[in-house]
Design a protein around this nucleic acid. Structure first.
Lengths: 225, 225
DNA sequence: GGTGTTGAAATTGTATAAAATCATTCGGGC
DNA sequence: GCCCGAATGATTTTATACAATTTCAACACC
């Protein structure tokens, strides 16, 4: 446990379980049960839930408890819209300042990504994707925007995980685009990298919308929630 | 008190006091003192502080307490950058859907603004500015972006309040631009309104940066923090 | 048969009190 | 004289206990 406070570590664990799908979307998160599960009191659990609500992963209704934020096409679209508005700006600021160590770490992430791709380990993909994107923006010196994009990436991972259970071809395309973005950044072609990033996010959005619209269920929200 | 929970009303009150300057930037917020001040326990105070930290108005260091988020030119610049990235998109989506009632309410806000301007009541200005901007974006159907912009507007108000103590001319310019934006939206000139909004935010940013740089103190951060 | 009401059970919100952590200060050693 | 370390004080963090609110179900009533 690297977190100094219990609320922080509990929050990190709950976040992980939400992203893993261990706590399904829309399910109630009872403070008492969580407290018993973590061997703690309800107060650090409450604080963890508040933090997760700020990140958008949990919804809290006063006197009615907390639930895992439901998945809806509208919210996925909004999250991807925000990513499309913010990430290119961050990349434009950060790319010229990326160091050799940063690119080395990016290569490592890309290799891990490819390994997970061959192994079919979709569980690792979400974290790797988030780490790569945040690494590319890390030199922008925009801490608030960076934290916000981190939350958005986590939220998008929840939807992408659904999508990947039926369609794995998107992963290869994402891998190619990631490699190309890194390559363009390394060679100093910042504006080209940003343009490709815009396409990348737009394509993820389009594919996800197509998937959410053509889901096996009859109605969209019913299938997802 | 319209809030259903005590933590909510305490949070609203603390937020108001931060925006009013009643709790100055960088000052410690002791849970015990706040609890005594509100006649409540420390737990709802804690939850209120967590919520305010998510909005960016409060910084919490584990085991070291909470403080009002300090003011720095870098953070002001980032907040205005984010506003510049988000608000035009929201206006483009919302403007075509604004109703007659919305415009009537906008006129009311503009009149109140003008009245406050004549009376020299800069205290009212922040809330009116926030309300007007959020009203213009309210039909975009982007709840997450709207909440985020609300937080950014609140944060910007803290800096603008500083600036207005020495320079009141900016208020008139803002008033003119607000009226023009509303007029363009009402007449269906959405893209022109968005372009003016971009200029509006850019000008606020430039004026604020000039003020923060030319402050009476020698160094920038020392004067502000 | 449908609807409104009333009661109990469960869950959340709050208060009080104990435990852990951090900053400070005083004393001792180099 | 200056730096390092332990005790002290304050503050946060967590646990336990209590109060307020909501929800669900049974039941009377229209």
């Amino acid at each position: 446990m690297k977190n100094r406070t219990m609320a922080g570590s509990i929050g990190a664990e709950i976040r992980q379980r939400i992203l893993d799908g261990h706590y399904p979307a829309g399910s109630q998160l009872r403070q008492d049960g969580l407290a018993a599960e973590f061997g703690a009191s309800r107060i650090p659990v409450r604080e963890a839930l508040f933090q997760l609500e700020a990140e958008g992963l949990v919804r809290i209704h006063p006197h009615r408890g907390a639930m895992v934020a439901p998945l809806s096409p509208a919210e996925a679209a909004e999250a991807l819209e925000l990513r499309g508005a913010l990430e290119p700006r961050l990349l434009a600021l950060s790319a010229p300042r990326l160091t050799a160590d940063d690119f080395a770490r990016a290569d490592t992430l890309l290799d891990e990504y490819a390994a997970a791709l061959r192994a079919g380990a979709t569980a690792r993909w979400g974290a790797l994707n988030t780490d790569l994107h945040l690494l590319l923006y890390s030199r922008a010196e925009r801490p608030r925007a960076l934290g916000l994009v981190g939350s958005l990436l986590a939220e998008c991972d929840r939807y992408t995980r659904l999508q990947l259970s039926t369609d794995g071809a998107e992963l290869e395309r994402a891998d190619r685009e990631h490699r190309e973005i890194v390559r363009l950044c390394r060679n100093g072609h910042v504006s080209a990298a940003c343009a490709l990033l815009v396409d990348h996010i737009a394509h993820v959005a389009a594919a996800l919308m197509a998937f959410l619209g053509d889901g096996p269920g009859s109605t969209k929200s019913a299938r997802i929630v």
